[in-house]
Nucleic acid binder design. Structure first.
Lengths: 260, 260
DNA sequence: TAGTGGTCTAGACCACTCA
DNA sequence: GAGTGGTCTAGACCACTAG
């Protein structure tokens, strides 16, 4: 058993042993680096299953827990995807889609490129007083409704989203193929995009399960405020998107021209 | 020793034991939740040191590794900060600053609120052919320079940034108090903000050490393209900001008005 | 030197998936 | 039932910080 550890000076690694032990660096870091390099080199191809953790541990000559730590790093970084009871798989190289603010919605932006966006409704709730407190729509007193839904792009989970709007404007039925904005437009409400706020967060449990990513993975959070043509607030949005998949482009004033 | 585990059915927890074992939930999740609640309740105040890992393990009746796992979760979520050889400390509640695109730069935006922004230059390099390949400035042939620097807001690390520009335009000296944009302006080059791209990423080793956050924590990545008044590219920027600290607000066209 | 977090091992058992 | 990942324990030793 190659249980030597150069750092602690317990024993020297036997000649020809695995290249994952270097003085001054944690073994799990070296395993992470080595696995990443193998994946980059194509030694493990996208979609392919990595050897079982026990096998990796054996071939690196380290404990299984050390391998797991490396795998967890790669999973959080989005390099691999681990499935309980099955194995760890190299993820397909991510297509990072550019969302251009020149379009009215993600659906429009993507359909211009021939990609289909669908919507899966998770929940529709009328908010109680307390929950609605943060969402006042001055020109629309009365109940407030929250839509929770998932957007799916080209068959893959795209974002976990919430939309809050006055009940008076909310669509009673919503075709999964069109955007919520489009559904409102069908009911005669024109929607103007007024403000977008960008931040990042660690994926919580919901994000992880709905987006198929690791707990703690980075998530891009886009908050939006929409108004009617008169400038009255009618809709507040939150989109949580897996970091590797999204990239929002905003063209700033005075200088709008086409870019590749 | 309360080494019982309800999930595995080995033994039942003794009455009055710590509240961190519930069937169907991993112990480390319960410890994470419990610690987070204590912090939220103020039981552990901001700046305060948590009990040593060994002590926590003992009081929860679990192994130290289980406690470490919970602490790692909290660290990645930005709730605590762990310091080798000293302890884990509750972080000060984060002030999430809104960067408003109505201002020309972060410095301007913050100074309007009485907050000082300073800049620490990490490196200034003239890029070689290969490295410069991705940064062509059509109207400025010749060498390309890259500034690597850290922005500090109100004494705390704000972003790890890079700016690439033609050497012909680059300032030879740069007062840490002003922004790079301002430095260019001082040299007679007007800078127009043309495009901003928002995405998220996991903190790499550099991010972690320069921003004082945990490896793998979410980072908001803002890429920018600036032009001269004639619309010619003169500057490409990348800002990597700790997720909890930043929030970029963009007001979209046609509907600009003041908001609180 | 004492106390703290950081890393690693060996071994066990559970939960999930699939043939 | 066999194989895989998920969780947990006990124990050891290292690296860092402070008094």
């Amino acid at each position: 058993m190659a249980s030597s550890d150069v750092r602690s000076g317990r024993r020297l690694a036997p000649p020809g042993s695995s290249p994952v032990r270097r003085p001054g660096t944690a073994v799990y870091s070296e395993v992470t680096r080595d696995l990443r390099e193998r994946i980059d080199r194509g030694e493990y191809a996208p979609g392919e299953r990595l050897p079982a953790e026990t096998d990796l541990a054996h071939s690196y000559g380290v404990n299984r827990l050390t391998v797991r730590r490396a795998l967890a790093n790669l999973a959080r970084a989005g390099v691999i995807r681990t499935k309980h009871g099955i194995g760890s798989f190299v993820r397909e190289p991510v297509v990072r889609h550019r969302i251009d603010d020149g379009h009215a919605s993600l659906s429009e932006s993507m359909e211009a490129r021939g990609l289909a966006v669908t919507h899966e409704v998770i929940a529709v709730e009328v908010l109680n007083e307390e929950a609605a407190a943060g969402y006042r729509f001055e020109h629309w007193p009365g109940q407030v409704v929250r839509f929770s839904y998932r957007r799916v792009l080209a068959g893959l989970p795209w974002s976990l989203s919430q939309a809050v709007m006055p009940e008076a404007l909310a669509p009673t039925s919503w075709d999964a193929r069109e955007s919520l904005t489009a559904a409102l437009r069908d009911r005669g409400t024109q929607v103007v995009r007024a403000e977008r706020t960008f931040s990042a967060a660690a994926a919580d449990h919901d994000d992880a399960s709905w987006l198929g990513i690791e707990l703690g993975s980075p998530v891009l959070v886009v908050r939006g405020l929409n108004t009617d043509p008169g400038g009255h607030d009618i809709m507040r949005l939150v989109h949580r998107t897996s970091a590797e998949r999204a990239e929002y482009v905003v063209r700033l004033a005075n200088n709008r021209r086409e870019r590749p």
